[in-house]
Design a protein around this nucleic acid. Structure first.
Lengths: 201, 201
DNA sequence: TACGAATGTGACCCTAGGGTCAACTTTCGA
DNA sequence: TCGAAAGTTGACCCTAGGGTCACATTCGTA
């Protein structure tokens, strides 16, 4: 990442983009455990170049995660004023799942404390989802006992469960999102046995 | 594992148990990525001993997973004749989550093809869950469009989402199981957008 | 164009972790 | 009791992968 005091040299700026793009593709294809070597090969640069641009592999991940979550926050903020609050929340969850980067959330929640960029973004996401959840609750679109933390945690389940299949249909996550979202609805909701976790996201 | 043609020598039998027990504890504590060294240290034996008892680390995992899934199958088969089919399915899912070994399922589904022990167990689990699901559907306890594969996939979500939290309450998974199970109920169910995957478990 | 600073390069280092093996020790039956 | 088969041991091998660094290259400017 690095916030350059002076602008990057032209070749450096290009390589930075190449690395980011390559990393995104590789992560998508092989999950968060791709090797730096794979990324570097795809980008067409040498390993040393990678570490000139990113302090570590985790630093790269933080950069990408920050970008994705940032995009997600934009979506959420856009939806804050929607007329149909229930549809807005579902829309948000759909976009989140469609991004397909379920490791985002895991990284967001794990590595958050140690990385300033990520922890700031995390707070913003939480705040924005809170608004969507509150709106949906007020509108009677979801049960009253569900919190933003619940939603953020459940957000990644559709993509995750699908990964258990050897070759899942690319839109299968929609099926499980639909089921889980039905579970969030007030109709026929049963008492939840355990209180929500602290919002200590 | 090895199916001993002749019975194990007494010390070998003891070490086998020690390894299995140690592995179970280590997996529980550190997830499926514990090193063989950690397991071996806890068991109090040398590394070489490990590999006399198990052909590979995956072999050990297969042994443990087989054991867990076997126990789960027993539970499922016990519940097949229950009067309240809906409660029986919920009960099954509760036991599955309480086992807390969500990697079981992932291993079961991934490594299944390459391991005879696991693939046999996998089929039995699928069959038994099918019965529970069919019973529950017939009883009107779950929506009609949900399959055994759906249930098996969703089975591990409660434990998984909870893992995103730095220190989740030990019973928090019950909250998410309740939400997801409500999503499986027929009351207020919305049309699912994508067909179920092939039952090619 | 020429020079210094910024950047790129890839050989190299280090560690972790799975797996092997020849020598040593224990078990157990005759 | 004793010897062979079964089991144990830990030093060793190998690979993958993250990260470093001295040197080569390129950019941008005077």
């Amino acid at each position: 990442m690095m916030t350059p005091d002076r602008p990057l040299r032209s070749d450096a700026a290009r390589n930075h983009e190449l690395l980011l793009d390559a990393a995104e593709i590789e992560f998508e294809a092989k999950g968060p455990d791709v090797s730096v070597l794979d990324i570097v090969r795809r980008a067409g640069v040498a390993k040393g170049t990678f570490f000139r641009h990113f302090a570590s592999k985790d630093d790269l991940i933080a950069a990408i995660v920050g970008k994705h979550i940032g995009a997600l926050i934009d979506v959420a903020e856009h939806l804050e004023g929607a007329e149909d609050a229930g549809a807005a929340l579902l829309q948000f969850l759909t976009v989140a799942s469609a991004q397909r980067e379920q490791y985002d959330v895991s990284f967001l929640l794990r590595a958050g404390e140690s990385d300033d960029r990520v922890s700031g973004v995390r707070t913003r996401l939480y705040d924005s989802v809170s608004v969507l959840v509150d709106n949906a609750r007020t509108a009677g679109a979801i049960r009253t006992d569900v919190t933003a933390t619940d939603v953020i945690l459940l957000m990644c389940a559709p993509n995750h469960v699908v990964e258990y299949l050897p070759s899942p249909a690319p839109d299968l996550w929609q099926r499980y999102l639909a089921i889980i979202f039905d579970g969030l609805r007030p109709a026929g909701a049963h008492q939840l046995p355990v209180p929500a976790p602290n919002d200590a996201l």
